[in-house]
Computed example of a mutant assay.
Amino acid sequence: MTAKMVVQQPRPFVVATDSNQWSSGICDCGKELLECCFAFWCFPCFACKTAREYGECLCLPLLDSFGFIPPITLSMRVSMRQRYGIMGTIFNDCLYACFCGPCVWCQMSREMKARLQPITLVNARAK
């Protein structure tokens, strides 16, 4: 009987979620249906919860009711793009903040969850 000696161990490779794009689209509510329902039925609560998870003041999103352009939604989206290195323009951020507020907050919530996931090590078998 001959025994095979393992000369090279399979090396794990790292799957990282770092990208210069949003991990989900502005209208990808199907990925987190419960959160989207929460945002739809109680948007102020959802926005405050998301702001708190991002590290901002809990009541900060309540200031969005002043003015045509929601300043907090806009600034949070720009801040998140800068923090995670996501490509985009202030013009698009402004449009989304003005016309798609709840969708923007849902997208930001999904992005935080995607970016804060631990790195996954996957074993690759060498043949």
Rank of each mutant, 00 (worst) to 15 (best):
T2H: 03
T2D: 03
A3N: 04
V6Y: 11
Q8D: 15
P10C: 12
P10M: 12
P10W: 13
R11W: 13
P12E: 12
F13I: 15
V14F: 12
V15T: 14
D18N: 13
D18K: 14
S19A: 14
Q21P: 05
Q21Y: 14
W22H: 05
S23C: 08
S23K: 04
S24E: 10
I26M: 09
D28I: 14
C29K: 10
G30L: 13
E32H: 14
E32M: 10
E32L: 09
E35Q: 12
E35V: 08
C36T: 11
C37P: 00
C37K: 11
C37V: 15
F38W: 15
A39S: 11
F40N: 06
W41A: 15
C42I: 10
C42H: 12
C42Y: 12
F43T: 08
C45Y: 05
A47D: 02
C48H: 06
T50F: 03
E53P: 00
Y54K: 10
C57W: 12
C57Y: 07
L58K: 01
L58I: 04
L60Q: 12
P61K: 05
P61C: 00
L62E: 06
D64V: 01
D64C: 04
S65Y: 15
S65M: 13
L74A: 00
V78E: 08
V78K: 04
V78C: 08
S79T: 14
R81I: 00
Y84W: 14
Y84C: 07
G85A: 02
M87S: 13
M87I: 11
G88S: 03
I90M: 00
I90K: 01
F91L: 02
C94H: 01
Y96E: 07
F99A: 09
C100L: 10
G101V: 05
P102A: 10
V104Q: 06
V104R: 09
W105G: 02
Q107C: 04
Q107G: 07
M108C: 03
M108P: 02
R110I: 01
R110N: 01
R110H: 01
E111G: 08
E111C: 07
M112P: 00
M112G: 04
K113T: 05
A114Q: 11
R115N: 11
Q117I: 06
Q117C: 04
I119S: 07
I119V: 14
I119C: 07
T120V: 05
T120C: 02
V122L: 03
V122Q: 06
N123Y: 06
N123P: 00
R125M: 05
K127G: 09
